[in-house]
């Protein structure tokens, strides 16, 4: 029978020292370092209000800083001012709706980064024309001579899509309606939906996503409204990058967005915040620029920028 060799104590010490060094390196390596260098500016288009925009996107901006190791500044931007401020070189990265993306791509060669996913259609949504459940309007033809409320003019699924639906049905919104209106101020899409609900208007032009969100939040019920007509689904809010930004940084930015998971958090003001949850986003998707051709065709049909002809 062979004898079992005793273990020598010196061997343990020789093993212990490198192990402790390794543990120390891992612990110290895990410490977060504050990013340094130039500040990159991200222009976030205001969806509902400036306060809401910052509340949604500051955690995402902090996350990007942490992931990329560079400094970012989040700038809330009014939809109407966005193109002009971009042209002045104010933003390195953009987060806009699909119309602004198409305009900036067409006119400024903005690079597509990623499209946000939210709601049942993921990175896309549709525009719908809805009426109250008890409305006597049954078809699009019945809309003639009625009062209609659109969303903001630069909203693809809140204005352009519904305008297109009406034109396709042979109804010219400029001539065939009693009148139409566009709400002022913040939370315009909600105002549109409530406008029809409270009877101030007969028909509402609402993005399907906003209907979904309001139902999920319990603000309205699914059968409060009837959907008269609905557009095709089209890409929605989009991140873009100015062509002057270092392509490597652009690629890392995209990867950071695509790998974001619901459980990813950042620390802000002593609080740990879930990034996607705060941004009201389910995730990001890498669409192709050609996926936006459906948006472009629509904008051409309704004679809107960047294809507007006078």
């Amino acid at each position: 029978m062979n004898e079992i060799l005793p273990v020598r104590r010196g061997a343990w010490l020789r093993f212990l020292f490198p192990m402790m060094t390794l543990v120390l390196a891992v612990v110290l390596g895990g410490c977060e370092k504050a990013p340094s260098g130039p500040v990159y500016r991200i222009g976030y288009m205001n969806c509902n209000s400036e306060a809401e925009t910052m509340h949604r996107f500051l955690p995402l901006t902090r996350y990007l800083e942490k992931e990329l190791g560079v400094r970012f500044e989040a700038i809330p931007v009014d939809t109407q001012d966005f193109v002009e401020r971009y042209e002045q070189g104010e933003f390195d990265f953009t987060h806009t709706n699909a119309i602004l993306y198409v305009i900036l791509k067409e006119e400024q060669n903005l690079e597509l980064l990623a499209t946000e996913k939210r709601g049942q259609y993921g990175s896309r949504t549709a525009g719908a024309l809805v009426v109250r459940r008890d409305s006597d309007i049954q078809t699009l033809e019945d809309v003639r001579g009625k009062r209609l409320i659109f969303g903001p003019q630069l909203a693809l699924q809140g204005y352009a899509a519904q305008y297109d639906l009406l034109l396709k049905a042979g109804i010219d919104p400029e001539l065939d309606l009693a009148y139409y209106a566009i709400p002022h101020g913040s939370f315009k899409h909600e105002k549109v939906i409530y406008g029809a609900w409270f009877g101030a208007y007969d028909v509402a032009a609402a993005p399907v996503l906003d209907l979904e969100v309001m139902i999920a939040e319990g603000k309205i019920e699914a059968d409060d409204f009837r959907v008269l007509a609905q557009s095709e689904v089209m890409p929605y809010c989009t991140f873009g990058a100015a062509p002057r930004v270092d392509p490597k940084l652009v690629d890392r930015f995209r990867q950071a967005l695509l790998k974001l998971k619901p459980e990813d958090t950042v620390e802000m003001d002593g609080e740990r915040i879930k990034v996607l949850n705060a941004a009201l986003i389910d995730g990001f998707e890498q669409l192709l620029d050609s996926d936006y051709d459906i948006n472009r065709d629509l904008l051409r049909r309704v004679n809107m920028p960047p294809y507007q002809e006078f």
């Binding site: 049942q120 139902i215 319990g218 059968d223």
Partner: peptide
């Protein structure tokens, strides 16, 4: 054939 209405109803049931 009311697909969108059905999806919205699903959203409500999801609550």
């Amino acid at each position: 054939g009311q697909a969108q209405q059905a999806l919205l109803m699903l959203e409500q049931l999801n609550r």
